[in-house]
Computed example of a mutant assay.
Amino acid sequence: MSTLAAFPITKRWPAQHPDRLQLYSLNTPNGVKASIMLEEVGLPYEPHLIDIMKNESWLPEYLALNPNGKIPAIIDPDGPGGKPFCLFESGAILLYLAEKTGKLLPADPALRYETIQWVFFQMAAVGPMFGQVGFFHKFAGRDYEDKRPRDRYATESKRLLGVLEGRLDGRTWMMGEDYTIADISLLGWVRNLVGFYEAAELVDYAALSNVPAWLDRCLLRPAVQRGLEIPSRG
């Protein structure tokens, strides 16, 4: 197996177990996708905390791994062809780990693409919209007298929750009876919207039934409980 020394990030965050997959992350809604997935599939990995509040994702060593300066990112020492392989973007990481392990992504082509469409739905719509609600409702947006930006994002987030509510009608998980990367991609964002962002009332979360029940099922999974706390903030 090749060394990881060629990756500049390992100079600042040394690998104590270079034979394991290296995770560079923080337990944000995007970050926990990778840690939950790794816990679910049981791949040995070594987590490294990238403190975005200290701008560590903009350090040259991190940018050498992800030029976009966002978390999470991974280095797999046993990547395609047995060579070290680095990857960023949480959705891409979910797909990569699912295909590497043969877990949490249906083998049937139609079901596989149906699962992937919901991951893309999260990446393109749920993440950006819920994140804007978090900014305008909980953080600096509260200082703006003009509430139209907040209300615009809240209205769209409420609509997106309605899409999830309809999808989950009569289903245990996003894909029916099988828990998949679609659920992993979404659960952290829904949890943050109503928890950390304190926006449940703003998006009328109490009017939903399928989404809250689904989120409760997600949060009962031991791998989810572990992954939500990784990497530890100390």
Rank of each mutant, 00 (worst) to 15 (best):
K54Q: 15
N68F: 10
Y62S: 03
F121C: 09
A98V: 08
V163M: 12
E99K: 13
F136P: 06
P44T: 08
F120A: 09
A154Q: 14
K70S: 01
A124Y: 08
I74P: 05
G176K: 07
L63D: 13
G79W: 06
L168H: 11
E156A: 05
L161Q: 14
M175C: 12
F130I: 13
Q122K: 06
L59V: 10
G82Q: 12
L164E: 03
F85T: 01
G69V: 03
I52P: 00
A92L: 09
G170Y: 08
I184G: 01
L160E: 00
P80N: 06
I181W: 03
K158D: 10
Y113S: 04
L105R: 05
F121T: 11
D169I: 00
T155Q: 15
A98R: 01
E177R: 03
D169C: 07
A182F: 04
C86W: 03
I75W: 03
Y153Q: 02
W58G: 02
S57H: 15
E99Q: 14
N55H: 11
L160D: 07
G176M: 06
P47M: 01
F88A: 10
Q117M: 09
G162N: 14
D146I: 11
N66C: 01
K70C: 11
M129S: 13
Y96C: 12
K158G: 03
I93H: 14
E99M: 06
D143V: 02
A182M: 07
F121I: 11
D146P: 01
Y179F: 14
D76R: 00
G141Y: 10
L97V: 15
F120E: 01
E114F: 00
F139G: 03
D146N: 15
G166C: 05
M174T: 11
F85M: 09
E177I: 00
F120G: 05
N66K: 09
Y179R: 04
R167I: 04
S185I: 00
Y179N: 07
D151H: 14
I181M: 10
K138S: 15
P128S: 09
P128Y: 01
I93V: 08
Y45I: 12
F88Q: 02
Y96M: 10
L160P: 08
E156P: 06
I93M: 13
M174D: 03
D108F: 02
W58P: 00
M129R: 00
Q117R: 15
